[in-house]
């Protein structure tokens, strides 16, 4: 058999292209992007609102507060995870196609993760701003200008950070599972995996 001289180069992932694809995907699917942002923003807004609510000495009130906190985190988690799972599993065909064109597994994975992280970050920014505004406005109504004596604005940076962590963790975690699966599939199986 005639010997052929060709060697296989290793393809490199271009971070610039990952970013470009992620941003493009968010722009083109603007209605989905908006909807996802809303889900995340609502979650972080409610979390930050709860975290800055006035302290109560009443034990029953405190228990209700913890219950609300727990439930709200759970409900947001379910909502955001579901949104992210859906949005990735609707893209198996696109992922399969890109793999046919020579996309590396990690290119596919990173693109989805960067996209999710952007959603989580922007959603959290909006959520924190809205949550703090609501908290302050309601505080003003209730307590007038002495609101900061009542609202729990201690550790505020940490609380904001928690809202961010929640947003970004939920989006990236929610999309990572289907993204890992899709990125590792042979391209045709990925295309067929679409529901």
């Amino acid at each position: 058999m005639a010997h052929k001289e060709w060697h296989i180069d290793r393809l490199k992932m271009k971070p610039g292209l990952v970013w470009q694809m992620a941003v493009n995907s968010l722009k083109v699917r603007i209605s989905r992007t908006t909807l996802t942002l809303l889900t995340i923003a609502t979650s972080s807004a409610f979390l930050i609102y709860l975290l800055t609510l006035p302290r109560s000495d009443d034990l029953a009130d405190q228990q209700t507060w913890y219950l609300m906190l727990g439930l709200s985190v759970l409900v947001s988690a379910a909502g955001v995870l579901n949104t992210m799972l859906m949005s990735v599993s609707q893209r198996y065909r696109e992922i399969g196609t890109m793999k046919c064109l020579g996309a590396l597994d990690k290119f596919v994975l990173f693109t989805v993760m960067v996209e999710s992280a952007i959603l989580g970050f922007v959603g959290a920014v909006i959520g924190v701003l809205v949550g703090l505004t609501i908290s302050i406005l309601l505080g003003l109504l209730e307590y007038g200008f002495s609101l900061f004596q009542y609202l729990q604005f201690d550790w505020i940076l940490l609380k904001i950070l928690a809202a961010f962590a929640l947003g970004i963790f939920l989006t990236t975690f929610g999309s990572s599972i289907p993204a890992v699966i899709a990125s590792r599939m042979p391209p045709m199986d990925a295309m067929r995996g679409e529901k």
Binding site: D9, N24, V28, R29, E94, G102, L104, D105, M191
Partner: peptide
């Protein structure tokens, strides 16, 4: 996986029954 990606990228051109062009591009 990387070499397979290279093969699909550089060695083979695919024309699918259902086009499969990326809708968002």
């Amino acid at each position: 996986a990387n070499e397979l990606a290279w093969l699909r990228c550089r060695k083979i051109g695919y024309i699918f029954q259902s086009y499969n062009i990326v809708k968002v591009l």
